[in-house]
Design a protein around this nucleic acid. Structure first.
Length: 383
DNA sequence: AAAACGGGGTC
DNA sequence: GACCCAGTTTT
């Protein structure tokens, strides 16, 4: 078939296949543009199965634009806990507040207006416009680029912005009249269910007869994608600081800075440490105490090693040694007035912990700690 | 154009 | 262990 027939074949058969085979996903049951928006932001760089429970909780906690606009930021962050890329949550709330104030709570259906909202890039704007308003805008994500690169044999590096722009033009051409929302979702559904990254299910593909990549035996080589840089390793020492006296049963936690990695999340105190002293627990523990004192003006006494753990972000790998500690003299000493305070410290007990948002790595450590404590109280089973 | 920005599933 | 996921923002 010629190029035009190939495109037409693709659009028609993909759309039919989608309408007959689409998954029943929570956000597909809604026509609420705000709910669709929430789902699209959650789905950025995140799998469907991971998002589903978060989507239910989030839309229950913040069912409307107004509810999210008026919620305290900490509650929003807590609802996002564990999902990652936390700037998504803060940007979403900021954008929703703008919609609440400037657009009377109505999610804009205009390309320029919606694109100007925080956290709404080319993909998300296209997804909302097409799915919520059925406007013929492309919504090109990783799935779509994989599908198009294979079907049309596009060998440009999909990591390049120029390639995405090219894909968007192509994707827009393919949208069948009046079916933008279904078609865009069909493209992503195919990428997720059939045209998978590895070992695609070509034999059951609804558009296999028009697929140039398949015809040329290239489906395994596409899309072309430059390799990502490996994360840089970092050594970190972590303090599990248990309170005594009036703080008995509580832990000392701190809030991260306003900007940057894990912005405004809460965590166990920890410090980076240079390689030379890494290796023995004694040196690391001593290093931890000294670092917390010099960096945060928090004096802790040397503690016992508790566990080692590892946590990998996209760009950093934390290799962590965790120590049990006690606070030195009195409470934490925030720096003097007028001086920049990089972290805020606070004693919290098990119940209060529920209202603070922690990165998963610290949730893991705290759970491990609680289990050990419970074993001590009940008389340890096993070892 | 490159780096920052989480966390987890999968083969 | 490598790859990748319904990406956006900042540098």
């Amino acid at each position: 078939m010629n190029a035009e027939e190939q495109k037409h074949y693709f659009s028609i058969h993909l759309l039919d296949w989608y309408r007959a085979n689409k998954r029943d996903l929570p956000w597909r049951r809604s026509k609420n543009p705000y709910h669709i928006w929430v789902s699209e932001v959650m789905l950025q760089q995140t799998r469907v199965d991971t998002v589903i429970p978060y989507f239910h909780r989030f839309t229950e906690l913040f069912p409307t634009v107004e509810a999210l606009a008026e919620a305290p930021e900490e509650e929003v962050l807590k609802a996002w806990e564990g999902l990652g890329y936390y700037s998504r949550a803060r940007n979403l709330q900021s954008a929703v507040r703008e919609v609440h104030e400037r657009y009377g709570g109505v999610v804009p259906s205009d390309k320029a207006e919606i694109s100007s909202l925080k956290g709404v890039g080319p993909y998300t704007s296209g997804a909302i416009l097409s799915i919520a308003y059925n406007k013929p805008e492309p919504a090109v994500d990783g799935n779509v680029m994989r599908v198009l690169s294979r079907y049309f044999v596009i060998e440009e590096d999909i990591m390049k912005p120029a390639t995405r722009v090219k894909m968007e033009r192509l994707a827009q051409e393919l949208i069948p009249e009046g079916a933008a929302g279904d078609f865009n979702q069909a493209l992503m559904e195919l990428g997720a269910m059939v045209c998978t990254p590895r070992s695609p299910y070509c034999l059951t593909c609804p558009v296999r007869l028009g697929c140039a990549g398949r015809e040329q035996g290239m489906e395994d080589k596409l899309p072309v994608k430059k390799k990502a840089k490996p994360p840089r390793p970092e050594l970190r020492v972590v303090a599990l600081i248990e309170g005594v006296g009036e703080h008995a049963g509580k832990w000392l936690i701190r809030q991260r800075p306003q900007e940057g990695l894990l912005a405004r999340m809460w965590e166990l105190p920890h410090a980076a440490w240079p390689e030379p002293v890494w290796g023995t627990d004694e040196n690391s523990a001593a290093a931890l105490c000294e670092a917390l004192l010099t960096e945060d003006n928090v004096r802790v006494t040397l503690g016992k090693w508790f566990m080692d753990t590892e946590h990998t972000f996209s760009h950093i790998q934390w290799n962590m040694k965790v120590f049990r500690c006690r606070l030195g003299d009195e409470a934490a000493h925030p720096r003097g007035a007028g001086e920049w305070i990089p972290f805020r410290y606070r004693w919290v007990g098990p119940e209060e912990l529920e209202s603070y948002a922690f990165p998963n790595v610290f949730v893991r450590i705290m759970k491990a700690w609680q289990e050990v404590q419970e074993e001590r109280e009940t008389g340890s089973p096993g070892n």
